[in-house]
Amino acid sequence: MSSKPITWFKDFLGVGYRYHDVYMNVFPLFAEKMPAFKLWKKTIDWWPDDKIKLAFVEEGDDYWFILYGGSEYKGDNTGFVKKVPVSENYSRFKAGFEKKATLRFGIYKELPKPKVERDGSVKKFDLEVLKRSKYVYDINFVKIADLAPDSVEWKCIQENRQ
């Protein structure tokens, strides 16, 4: 892992989950495809799968999504952080992720014209999960009270509180 301090990127919409693949998917959600693609190429593309760390730090009805890995080769040490509300999808991911998950980026945007589905429901948003992926083996779920004050996660949360 890079010895350079982590620069926390928090300018993404939230976190999405997908369950249909062999391993569950987790993905930060972005509004635009090209900036997300460029960010992936600059950061995560260079992270060795076995060095990626994903932490879900629970705090009341919310959790902190903290993702980092870094690369000695690239010299970039960007991490991702976002405080989001606990959801049914998060709880489902937590219960069934099987010690390994697929990391991807997702694009979530409002459709210019709402689309009527076959069942009569109206679809106002579209989700595209990008093809590039990494496997994450180091996944932790922890309560904020159980974090060590010298941990990367504790420092990240203190640095990124509004």
Score class of each variant (00 low, 15 high):
35 P>F: 08
32 E>Y: 05
113 K>F: 11
101 A>H: 04
25 N>E: 06
56 F>M: 03
22 V>H: 13
56 F>T: 00
98 E>Y: 15
37 F>A: 08
41 K>F: 15
54 L>K: 04
95 A>N: 12
30 F>D: 01
73 Y>N: 13
35 P>E: 00
19 Y>A: 09
93 F>Q: 07
64 W>I: 00
82 K>L: 09
51 K>A: 15
77 N>Q: 07
77 N>E: 09
65 F>Q: 02
25 N>A: 09
68 Y>K: 01
67 L>I: 04
64 W>K: 04
58 E>T: 06
96 G>L: 13
95 A>G: 12
95 A>W: 11
41 K>P: 06
65 F>L: 03
25 N>R: 10
111 L>S: 01
88 E>R: 10
22 V>E: 10
64 W>M: 02
62 D>V: 00
44 I>S: 10
74 K>S: 14
101 A>I: 04
32 E>S: 06
67 L>Q: 02
105 F>N: 06
94 K>C: 04
43 T>E: 00
107 I>H: 04
21 D>L: 14
67 L>S: 05
24 M>G: 14
21 D>N: 14
79 G>S: 11
45 D>H: 12
91 S>D: 08
107 I>W: 02
43 T>G: 00
23 Y>S: 09
96 G>H: 15
43 T>S: 05
66 I>S: 06
70 G>Y: 01
106 G>Q: 03
63 Y>S: 05
90 Y>E: 08
82 K>T: 00
48 P>S: 03
103 L>A: 01
24 M>T: 11
41 K>C: 12
108 Y>A: 03
